[in-house]
Simulated scan of single mutants.
Amino acid sequence: MKQGFVPAISLAVVLVVAVADASAQPVPVTASRATQSQVQNSTDAALDERQARDWGLRPDEWARYRQLMQGPLGVYSPNLDPLTALGIEARSDEERNRYAELQVEAESRRVNKTLAYQRAYDAAWKRLYPGLQRVNLPGARAPGAGNKGSGRLAVFVKADCARCEQRVRQLQAAGTAFDLYMVGSRQDDARIRQWATQTGIDPDRVRARTITLNHDAGRWLSLGLPGQLPAVVREVNSQWQRQ
């Protein structure tokens, strides 16, 4: 074999390896990220469309709701529902009336579902614990005799509820005595104290017991009343009624 052939063979091998390496180069990172971004944007758009439809809103209305919640409204009331947020920030009477009607319809559906579940819950209680008394308001009488009220208003509220805070401020400003029950407090005294401080409840009135702060502990559900919180109720002729 002639020695002159060796360099040619080596050069051919090098060229083949170089071509193979070039063809195995990975897809540029920028292209991969662009594809992921497109998929994410498509997913977000589909989610926004579905959420808007659930609330009876158009896509542009849902976009405005999200924009509003990124501003002061979202800071003051971070858990505000879309219809309330858009209604508060309505730009015309027509808009305000539209969101009010949508919310009435939504609340009607929610209340009907809640009552249906309450009936199922009552039936389950009777099956599982026959003869055992349900949780009632203070001073409750035997089953069938109704809940005996103290004569004061009972006010049911929850955290992150601007309307709850507003209603309690109105009652306090009017000098009304009432028993406040926080729904979802998880038996945490600190949660109630923090809410009371944030709402501006007068500590002197709490010490004087003209306003009492209490955990709900299932009392709101035991009343079986329709509607959302806040709920201001009073016992009238052995029947609890919203005021």
Rank of each mutant, 00 (worst) to 15 (best):
A18F: 12
S77G: 05
R205L: 15
G224F: 01
Q133C: 11
A90C: 10
A177G: 14
R152V: 05
A154H: 13
R66A: 03
A231N: 09
I9Q: 13
Q67C: 05
A100N: 15
K126D: 11
V39K: 12
A190C: 00
R53W: 03
K113W: 02
G200T: 08
L115M: 13
D48N: 12
Q51H: 15
D81L: 10
N112Q: 14
R110F: 09
R91G: 06
A8I: 13
A20S: 13
Q198R: 15
A154D: 13
T114P: 00
R50F: 07
P203R: 08
E94D: 04
G139R: 07
V183G: 06
E89T: 10
Y121P: 00
T197W: 01
Q170A: 08
R163Y: 12
D202P: 02
D188V: 07
V27M: 11
Q228C: 04
Y121G: 02
D48Y: 01
V155W: 04
L73C: 07
V29W: 03
R219H: 08
V183S: 08
A142F: 14
Q70L: 12
R134W: 02
V206P: 01
V17P: 00
C164P: 00
I201V: 14
Y129K: 15
L213M: 04
V236S: 05
R219S: 03
Q239Y: 05
V111S: 13
A46S: 10
Y99D: 05
G71F: 11
N112F: 07
